[in-house]
Design a protein around this nucleic acid. Structure first.
Lengths: 234, 234
DNA sequence: CAGGTTACGTCAACACCGTTGACACAAGGG
DNA sequence: CCCTTGTGTCAACGGTGTTGACGTAACCTG
């Protein structure tokens, strides 16, 4: 764990803030979460967090050494939530698809946080549980140890990568988003067939490019895994 | 196309800055590029751009309505550069892999910019050329129009998504990065076999998780496409 | 139950950030 | 040669994350 540890390992003295709130790591993480859910990670600031807590913004630094540290603490909680109620069905490929999609959906709601949890090793219980489950499914499919790790890495990073991209789209104002969808038609719909033969041919299908590609991409990954597993065992 | 247009369509009067520099759209984009290449997109600010240009920071707003607009202008240039010297070899699968890897590598150096170019339709020549080439390769492989578009979307977004993720790693200080690689061993290397059977079994392979997963992921995607194309044609 | 230690909430300040409006001047067209 | 106007500069606004000093209240000790 590189930098995760909060300043004091345990804390006992609790003094209420001038607004009467008793701070704690959990309360701060919860409040940060609510703020991000309500107004987007883009709008999150330490000062707003302080205001939402009913405390001076700088009080946060008694619990986390900086905002990155706070995000990291939020990360493991999100991993845990995204895995709530997940159970294996016996179809390892379908289970892996679901696992990756859960990671995607969770990360999409909290992209800033998600990037941290991918980049840094939290090493906390929720993360460990999820990794164990995913790699277990690949071992069950018959892959050897090294290959299982590699494929798990590919799946999860692809899901989270798409989330990082798609989160950018969500950040756009709805009107602008609609305009961009149409832009695929406007900019590409009438290109000369001689200079852009392929684009011209598929011009009617281009608006689909405005949506997310997670599911098609995951489907391809899973198909490849199924094929490779079949070749291995058979 | 949505919001790209700079403030005046054309400009004629050129007055040198107090440092003797004659500003222009191209000069500003070039300088922004150099700044990002040298110190990372994270460290880019309008004020530093002004200093690097030898002009007041606010002069930039005579050419771009805001920083997002500037990034968007940079995007198409990067697409063009990433495709420089690309030629098809006749092996459509290998060509697609190379195309996606070029997008990844280019985006990795300029993640902030890359997200914009994925999210927004630039509709400019370089973008159109790249899309036409990629979809052309899939049509050549025998996919129908709608499927070719879908697969192209999956490939490119996966490449760019991994870039967005991996860019986060690059932002870490090198020492911290090395520590995180080791963290996979430290946090996961000694987990109890009964609670985490799969993790325990593959524990020696976990440090690989610290690297990028682009190439393994792209290999899986390409394998799936090869398989699907073979089933189609034969 | 009193006293000392100290955790921690608060305050003020620092050094930044993107962006805007007023202003002055020089470039270019008539 | 003047007048319009494009455009570089300046100062300012309202934000940001983070830090250090400070005092008080909460706990531990006796």
């Amino acid at each position: 764990m590189t930098g995760g540890e909060r300043v004091p390992a345990e804390r006992k003295r609790r003094r209420p803030t001038s607004a009467g709130v008793v701070l704690s790591v959990d309360l701060i993480v919860d409040t940060a979460r609510e703020l991000i859910d309500a107004h987007g990670a883009q709008a999150f600031t330490v000062r707003k967090l302080g205001a939402a807590l009913g405390a001076d913004p700088s009080a946060v630094y008694r619990y986390f050494r900086n905002t990155e540290d706070l995000f990291l603490a939020l990360a493991d909680r999100l991993i845990g939530e995204s895995m709530e109620g997940f159970t294996t069905t016996g179809d390892w490929a379908a289970d892996l698809r679901e696992l990756a999609l859960r990671a995607y959906r969770s990360a999409l709601r909290h992209p800033q946080v998600a990037v941290f949890s991918t980049v840094r090793v939290t090493g906390r219980p929720h993360e460990q549980r999820a990794v164990d489950t995913g790699i277990g499914l690949l071992l069950q499919a018959g892959f050897d140890d090294a290959t299982a790790v590699r494929h798990y890495h590919s799946l999860v990073d692809t899901a989270l990568g798409h989330a990082a991209l798609d989160a950018g789209v969500l950040r756009l104002a709805p009107a602008q988003r609609a305009a961009d969808e149409y832009a695929w038609q406007a900019a590409y719909g009438s290109l000369p067939a001689d200079a852009y033969p392929s684009l011209h041919r598929v011009r009617n299908h281009l608006p689909h490019m405005a949506g997310s590609a997670v599911e098609p991409a995951l489907d391809l990954l899973i198909a490849a895994l199924r094929q490779e597993a079949a070749e291995r065992t058979g």
